[in-house]
Each structure stands twice: as C-alpha cells, then as structure tokens.
Amino acid sequence: MSIPPSVTTPVKSGSRDTSRSFWKLMYQVCLVSGLTHLLFAAVFYWLGAHTMAWINLGSVTLFTASYGCLKLHRNILAAVLIVSEVLIHAALAVWSIGWDSGFHYYLLVMVPVVVISSMRRRSSKYLLSGLVFVLYVALDFTMHQVRPLHELSAEVLSTLRAFNLAATFALLFYLSNLYMRLVSKAEKQLRILATTDPLTQLLNRRSFLELADYELTQRKRHLAPLAFVLADIDHFKSINDQHGHAVGDAVLKAVSQVLSQAVREQDSVARWGGEEFLILMPNATLEAASMVAERLREKVSAVEVTVGAQTIKVSMTFGVSSHRLEEPVDGPVNRADSALYQGKARGRNQVVAEAV
C-alpha cells in the first residue's frame, strides 16, 4: 500500500494566516484613517483652525504612504508610519486646540492594534503599549496647564469631544469585528488544510479515519450496512516515469474529480495514498457498493489527459469489502486491499469484491 500524502502542519500555516489577516487589517486602517483625517481637514479649515487643517492633511499623506508601503510589502515601514502618525497627531491636536477636544481618545485605539499585531516578541508589544500609556499620561498631565494654540468655543469643543468619543468607539468596534472575520476566515482555511489533500482536495487519511470511526459508531447503533471501496490507478508509475510528475498530478486531479462527482451523496472519498483512493459508503451492502464501483470504473475509463499531441487513457482497479460488526476500520480496509490486488493480478481495470 502506498505511503499517504503529507499533511500540512497547521501551526506554521496558522501563524502565516494570522499574519496575513493582521496586514489586511492594516490596509483597512490606512483607508479609514486617511478618509477620516481628510474630513477633519475640511472641518478645521471651515472652523478657522488652519494649523489643525494642515496637521490632518499631513496625516492623510502619511496614511497614503503607509498604504503604498503595504502594497510594496514593506510592512514594517508601514507600521512605523502608522504608529508615528497616531502618536504625533494626538499630541499635536491636543496642543493645538486643547485637551477638551478629545483627540487623545484615538491613542486608545493603538492598544488593541498593538496587542493583535504580528510582532513575534511580546516584549515589543509591551514596550509599544507602554509608550502609548506614557504619552497619554504625559498629555493628561501637561495639557491641562497649557493654553491651546487655537481657542474654540465651548460648543465647538463639546461637539468635537462627542464626535471623537463616538468615532473612537466606532473604530474599536469596526477593527475588532474586521479582525474577528479575518481570523475566522483564516481558521476556516486552516481546517481545510488539516482535513484535505492539497493536490486533489479530497479528504486526507486522518480526516477519513475520523469519519470512518463515526460511521462505525452509527453502524453499531442502527445495524445499517457499511462498505469500503479501495481504488488504485493502473500503471500510474509508468505514467510518472514516461511523462513526468506534473502529468501524474494532472491524472490524479482528473480521477479525483470523477470519483467525487460520481459517488452517492452520502459517500466520502479520500486520497488514501499516492495513487490510491478509499471510498466510505454508509448504508451500502457489498453488492450495492460493487455496483457503484463498477459505475466509477466506467467513468474513470472515459478519462483522457492530453499531453501535447499525446492523449493518456486512464483506468482503475477497485476492491470492495463490507464491514463486519465489532471490527475496527483496518479489517474492511485490508480486505478491500486484498480484493484490489486480486484485480491487479487478473489484468487490472476491474472491480473485485471480497469473498463472503
């Protein structure tokens, strides 16, 4: 029996997927923040606080540059620009129009972004979070004593504070929700990697065995028949040797597609080994499974893989077995394997059921 295909290591893949999710989040941060500061630039220009209008236009420039860095995969530079903008902008805004404007609230958005960042060292996260804390406390301590550069009316300051408070909560909710969706998507992709064969997209051996254990439990409860079909591509080694592994992979994909589409809805197909496939058939007797296997054999025999001007015909040999009560999965699989090799010895491209 062939060696099963390797399974992707979920830990490394998970780390990469989470990192990609974080940088996708940074794209959204740049877009949302850039548009927000552009709006603020217009508002402050209208209010006559021209210094703040220019500060916001500078922020728009920095977020645009950060977005460009992310597009060029210069992620660290983009992160430095984003962090610098938030810290410097908050300090300048409070200095320009006062603490009561509420622009210091945006420093709070930095904390969850730092925590969920893809920085590997926890010490870096602690250091950056501590820097945000120190800046916030420093602003709180000093800006109450300093007269702002632009003195706005109490009504305008109250409106700005309410807006900034609402915007801060909205940003925290938006970023948290977006990151949750990105991570959920990454976890879903991880589950697919962990349960399917990467080449054929069929179940891998481990996930098939888990499913088979479940079906065996169901069979003990309901005493319904359960069949196994082991199939092997005929002369597959010759295909690889004569045409190369790329053509062999194309054959495997073509056969996998036929098998997955032609089995019954309740059946499950797995890539069991190199060119071997195992099919689990709940509620199928040995006779019914043999009939399905014959239909699969006919459909696979119609498969043609074109290589340049040459066409490769494909065929498969099938071994069929039926589960017996109280036996583990190995029992019917081994009997299907024996029936398969009987078919190979008899000339291939046929269905052989175990002797009852």
Rank of each mutant, 00 (worst) to 15 (best):
S338P: 00
S2E: 11
S322V: 13
I97K: 03
L62P: 01
W23C: 06
N334G: 04
K237I: 08
I97S: 03
V351T: 13
L296M: 00
L38Q: 02
S13K: 10
L107K: 03
L47M: 08
G48I: 01
R271W: 00
V60Y: 01
K220H: 13
F318K: 01
Y126P: 04
E326Q: 14
I279T: 08
T9A: 07
E298F: 02
L39V: 07
L252S: 02
T317F: 05
A353W: 00
L203Q: 12
L157H: 05
L81D: 05
E155G: 11
L175K: 04
E304R: 15
V146P: 01
S260G: 10
N177I: 04
N177K: 07
Q266Y: 05
L202Q: 11
E187S: 13
A336K: 03
A170T: 05
K299E: 15
L131N: 05
F141G: 07
N334D: 09
G14A: 12
M119S: 11
L202I: 08
L171M: 14
A270G: 03
M119D: 08
C30M: 02
Q242V: 08
V109D: 06
R297Y: 04
L230F: 03
D267A: 08
G14D: 13
V300S: 04
L226A: 09
H37V: 06
E265H: 10
D140E: 15
S84W: 12
Q266P: 04
D330C: 09
A42K: 12
A49S: 04
W54M: 10
N349P: 07
V303R: 08
I55V: 11
V247L: 13
A91F: 03
Y174Q: 09
N240D: 06
R221D: 09
F103N: 05
M291D: 13
N75F: 06
N164T: 05
S124L: 15
M52L: 03
G343A: 11
L175Y: 14
I88W: 08
V43Q: 03
L325I: 10
S96Q: 05
D267C: 10
P5E: 06
C69K: 02
H323C: 15
W23I: 13
V292T: 15
H144N: 10
R348M: 11
L57T: 02
V113L: 09
E294S: 09
A250M: 12
A302F: 04
F163H: 07
L47V: 01
H150Y: 14
A355G: 07
A288H: 14
A90P: 00
L209I: 12
L278C: 01
Q145R: 15
L182W: 01
Y105C: 13
F228D: 03
L135P: 01
L131R: 02
V115W: 14
A167L: 11
F63S: 00
L31K: 04
L157Y: 04
L77P: 06
L280R: 01
V86R: 15
H222P: 02
L92W: 05
L296I: 01
T317E: 08
A262Y: 02
V229Q: 05
S322F: 05
E327V: 08
T196L: 09
Y45P: 01
L92Q: 08
K299F: 07
I88R: 06
R335I: 08
Y45L: 12
L202T: 12
V60P: 02
S6Q: 08
S101V: 04
V113C: 00
G319R: 06
K71V: 12
L47E: 02
S19D: 10
M180K: 07
V132E: 03
